[in-house]
Amino acid sequence: MRQSPDAVDVRIGARLAELRAQRAWSLEELADRSGVSRSTLSRAERGDISPTASLLNRLCHVYGRTMSQLLSEVEAEAPALVRAADQPIWKDRGSGFSRRAVSPPHDGLRGELVEGRLDPGADIAYDRPPVTGLEQHLWLLDGALEVTDGDQVHHLAPGDCLRMRVFGPTRFRCAGPAGAHYVLAVVRP
């Protein structure tokens, strides 16, 4: 028996379909540009699947936006003050990653704060940044995290802060027996 689709996944899918339509791209053309199969793209646009962080990252790269921008586009206009209970949480259940938009992005601003949590053993690889030259400041609050930026591997312990400009592949791996909890400040170029 098929579970009914998650409302957020349906809204994300609709926004992805809208972005593709705005560019007058076929599914085939988007598949070529993103490296994602046509069937996966079609299922994601219909809200039949919950897109993974890696899939959304590939599509954000093609559409020239951050993941926070994409996710905020399926939510209402972000107010100046966002109460903790109102901060949207998105989960990639397949990879063990959850992401809270602490300060949802705004078209007129370049920075945003994101809270990330990785389950023990979680390993997320991105083949490219959603926006080339994206500036990130990752502050590890709890756990152990291994971050790979291109060819450099960084091992973070609680309290460590890693600053990077992202131009190529990255990988976030929960390196300890407990989950990892961090704050990520993202600044668009």
Rank of each mutant, 00 (worst) to 15 (best):
P129Q: 11
S42T: 05
W25C: 04
A17V: 00
P88I: 14
E135G: 07
R43F: 10
A122S: 10
L145I: 01
Q22I: 03
A24D: 14
A78G: 08
M164T: 12
E115C: 07
H106T: 11
G121D: 05
V36L: 09
P158A: 02
H137V: 06
R65M: 15
G111S: 15
R117F: 13
G47L: 00
Q22K: 11
P129F: 08
W25S: 03
D92Q: 06
T40R: 07
D149Y: 07
T52G: 03
I49R: 04
H181T: 07
P177G: 14
Q152D: 15
W90E: 10
G13Q: 01
V82G: 08
A122C: 04
A80L: 14
R99P: 00
A180L: 05
D107L: 12
E135F: 09
S39P: 12
P169K: 12
E77D: 13
G116A: 09
A31Y: 04
V8P: 01
D142N: 09
N57D: 08
V36Y: 02
L81D: 14
S103W: 10
E115L: 11
T170S: 13
P104T: 08
A157Y: 09
L113A: 12
P129V: 05
L113H: 14
S4M: 11
V10G: 00
S50V: 01
V82I: 13
G47P: 03
P130D: 15
R83W: 13
L109H: 14
S95D: 11
S39T: 14
A44P: 02
V114Q: 10
S103G: 08
A17K: 06
G179T: 03
M164C: 11
Q3R: 14
G108L: 15
M1H: 13
L56Y: 01
T66Y: 00
H181A: 07
D86H: 14
S54K: 05
P104R: 08
P158S: 02
S26E: 05
V147K: 01
V131T: 06
V8G: 04
M67P: 00
R171K: 07
H155D: 12
L109A: 14
G64Q: 10
M67H: 01
E115I: 00
P129R: 04
E73Y: 02
Q3I: 00
L56E: 00
R2M: 10
S26R: 03
H155I: 01
A122E: 03
R93M: 13
G179P: 12
E28K: 13
Q69H: 05
W139R: 10
S103N: 10
A101L: 15
G133P: 08
L16D: 02
G116N: 10
R128N: 07
S34K: 04
L71I: 02
A53L: 09
S37C: 09
L81I: 14
R100C: 13
G96K: 04
L71P: 01
I124A: 09
A85F: 11
S72V: 00
G176N: 01
S72Y: 00
R23W: 03
L184M: 11
A21W: 06
R11L: 05
P51V: 01
R58K: 13
S50W: 03
E135C: 06
S42R: 05
M164Y: 13
Q152C: 06
E77L: 11
Q22V: 06
